[in-house]
Design a protein around this nucleic acid. Structure first.
Lengths: 152, 152
DNA sequence: CACAATTAGATTGTGTGCAATTAAAAATGC
DNA sequence: GCATTTTTAATTGCACACAATCTAATTGTG
């Protein structure tokens, strides 16, 4: 009897870890929101801009691979970024199936304003650099195992 | 110059940790989805059912506090669970502002079918028990610090 | 070359998440 | 004891997130 309950508790660990991840993601979002409101970006939009600030003129597919998002999410998001004059969407000439995303001058300028974000995030975590790096690496390893298990 | 780039990398750590959490949450969802499809539940609906299986007849507010969700999310979700005959929503007699959520017989029965879920999750993480527990505890601590920083 | 298979995005539909507002009930203050 | 404030849900509006489906373009194969 005792043994069985113990087994249930071990089983529940996966559920608990998932909920910890899920609720921590929401908590991060609550910290990012007021910072990103000033840039008129949502968090997923900010992620796309980070990709573009790192390398401009990327195809939708590559953005999706980097962020683990599909076109059903990215297409409307990118249209909103285009409506906000931050990016331009153009069909590739070499392969007309691809849509390339390029920063506008305003999109490039926003990078300067966005530099205040990481500092505030770092402070909110109240973690040491090594703790952050360790947690990041463990989560990335876990994520990759989960994606493998999901049959990717 | 070198020092400045190093500083930027440290700053980016918060961003990277947040993205690791965000993308791991999605990865977990991809693992849960086929399991929960059999129960005709989404992951947030599953979380609500876990709360109710632990204690029945809970107010919406308490569910929200446990799961860090507000009524804008929970009200439609609970209505869908009610439409699926898994719960019943009734106004409290003592405090008519509160809506109490009670499991139906079908809602209670579903608990048995749901017992297969945690085992599959545990396997998908490919983690040891101690790794899971450590990761869970670190994330909960991080989440609480973030919520504190967000001014809760 | 022809034509099937694959690939890249867009579209549609469902279900979260959350901010802001509203409405009703309960608690509080004077 | 009544007006004010607070609390609890519901509602509305916006933005993801993803499955399923569709179209157009490219690639692979004979």
């Amino acid at each position: 009897m005792v043994k069985k309950n113990g087994g249930d508790q071990v089983l529940a660990l996966g559920n608990q870890l998932c909920f910890a991840v899920y609720s921590t993601a929401h908590a991060f979002n609550r910290v990012y929101k007021p910072l990103l409101d000033r840039l008129r970006l949502t968090y997923p939009q900010y992620l796309v801009m980070l990709v573009l600030w790192e390398r401009d003129g990327v195809a939708v597919k590559e953005i999706g691979e980097r962020l683990f998002l599909d076109s059903g999410t990215l297409t409307p998001l990118l249209k909103r970024l285009e409506a906000a004059q931050l990016v331009k969407r153009t069909r590739s000439l070499e392969d007309e199936r691809q849509v390339l995303i390029a920063l506008t001058p305003q999109g490039q300028e926003l990078r300067e304003k966005a530099k205040a974000v990481p500092q505030a995030i770092l402070a909110a975590t109240a973690c040491s650099v090594s703790e952050l790096a360790t947690a990041r690496d463990q989560l990335v390893a876990l994520r990759d195992r989960l994606n493998a298990a999901a049959g990717e």
